[in-house]
Computed example of a mutant assay.
Amino acid sequence: MTAWLRNSIIAVMGLCSMSAGAQQSPADWRWFDVEVLVFKHAPNDENESFPWHPPRQFEAQNDLLSAFYAPDFSAFLHALDICPEENLTRPVFCAMPSELDPYSVWYDSARIMSGFSAAPATIISGYGGDMQTQPGPFLLASEEFEFADFREQLIRRNVGTPLLHATYRTPVFNRAENYKVRLFGGRNFGPEFLPNGYPQLPFVALEPAAEHSSKQVPQLFEELESLLNRVEQQQLQLSYRDHRTPNPPPLLAARERSERPTPVWELDGTLHIYLVGNYLHIDSDLELREPQRVQFNQRELAAQIEQALQPQLDSKFLRSYRLNQLRRVISHETHYFDHPRLGLVVQIRRTELSARR
């Protein structure tokens, strides 16, 4: 390697390290205020075809709402006395030994929120923060809202139902940083549906089911006769055609009664705001989930016959409607992202630390 090439590589690496070092301090970041209003449209009679998407589980670098809905009160517990062992009932102001164990990670926001029937709040009023020292984005108070009138008009005119309204202050980096913020709200379908969209599993039976000793032969003849009649009347057509509906649910073991269901929110997804040069971009990846009755896509001949004999096998499925849109935007302008089922309104506002440095 020539001395010139070696020196060039060292210089480039030095510039990269200086650039990375400049991003270490929050005071060196470019901060913006982001107001988001997400709502679902009122039901309509339009027969628009959408794919049967299952829900997805979203994990983002920044989840402001989980900590807001289920705050970590570990520090409060450490300031309490340990609960006395002789008492079977737990007093109000004491801490269990397991909660004070430094090697026990008992705090889990998803576990806490699994008992929520819905997100505790639609209109988020945060506690604010100092962007000079804050290590990441933080929620602002509701006094910062500019979409309040628009939100009230949605409700008053029965145009849509708000699912989330929040304003947060966030640093904005380039696209490669993948600095996303998770947004969720609405109903919690976790007690009814699994994260993959299929109905929740039954609980383990407390007692073994009694065996049926009655003969099944007459019932089989009745089912066969019913099946042949439906074929003759062309009410049943067996085929291997793909109906573009979800496949039947996988065979899984029943769940324990102590098991907490994973939260599955009516609205879930991420918002990625980033800079390309000096231009702001919004990349939305949101889902609206709705329970719908579905006839599972049975490709096996035996399964189709069983489904024909037992129409109650038709089940519900948590269908997902996705809003994926990418747009270059201008700060202080209101931007609307539309979908037949879902609406997103976003405004990005500059702060005193928004300018390029």
Results as ranks from 00 to 15, higher is better:
residue 224 L to N: 08
residue 8 S to Y: 15
residue 70 A to N: 06
residue 21 G to V: 03
residue 263 P to V: 10
residue 252 L to Q: 13
residue 7 N to M: 13
residue 355 A to V: 07
residue 237 Q to E: 07
residue 180 K to W: 00
residue 225 E to T: 00
residue 161 T to M: 11
residue 119 A to T: 07
residue 282 I to R: 03
residue 325 Q to W: 07
residue 122 T to D: 10
residue 187 R to P: 07
residue 288 L to D: 01
residue 336 Y to H: 11
residue 267 L to S: 08
residue 110 A to V: 00
residue 342 L to K: 06
residue 208 P to D: 13
residue 273 I to P: 02
residue 34 V to M: 04
residue 145 F to W: 09
residue 151 R to P: 02
residue 163 L to N: 06
residue 332 H to S: 14
residue 284 S to D: 08
residue 200 Q to F: 13
residue 229 N to R: 06
residue 8 S to N: 15
residue 300 E to F: 01
residue 18 M to C: 12
residue 285 D to E: 08
residue 237 Q to F: 05
residue 51 P to S: 06
residue 242 D to S: 03
residue 135 P to K: 05
residue 110 A to W: 04
residue 324 N to L: 07
residue 205 A to W: 02
residue 138 F to A: 06
residue 189 F to Y: 06
residue 329 V to N: 02
residue 222 E to H: 12
residue 159 V to M: 08
residue 100 L to Y: 04
residue 283 D to N: 08
residue 239 S to K: 08
residue 305 I to Q: 04
residue 308 A to G: 06
residue 112 I to Q: 08
residue 67 A to K: 14
residue 269 G to T: 03
residue 176 A to S: 09
residue 158 N to Y: 04
residue 45 D to N: 08
residue 245 T to H: 01
residue 205 A to C: 02
residue 23 Q to K: 10
residue 245 T to L: 01
residue 181 V to N: 08
residue 98 S to W: 14
residue 141 A to H: 10
residue 232 E to H: 13
residue 4 W to E: 15
residue 57 Q to S: 07
residue 309 L to Y: 04
residue 38 V to C: 09
residue 9 I to M: 12
residue 285 D to R: 13
residue 112 I to F: 05
residue 90 R to Y: 11
residue 264 V to I: 06
residue 16 C to F: 14
residue 238 L to E: 03
residue 117 S to P: 12
residue 349 R to S: 15
residue 235 Q to F: 01
residue 142 S to D: 15
residue 305 I to F: 01
residue 127 Y to S: 11
residue 142 S to F: 07
residue 14 G to N: 13
residue 280 L to A: 03
residue 170 T to V: 02
residue 282 I to N: 06
residue 283 D to Q: 08
residue 144 E to L: 00
residue 311 P to R: 02
residue 229 N to F: 10
residue 71 P to E: 06
residue 14 G to D: 12
residue 74 S to R: 15
residue 7 N to E: 15
residue 165 H to Q: 12
residue 293 R to I: 00
residue 201 L to E: 03
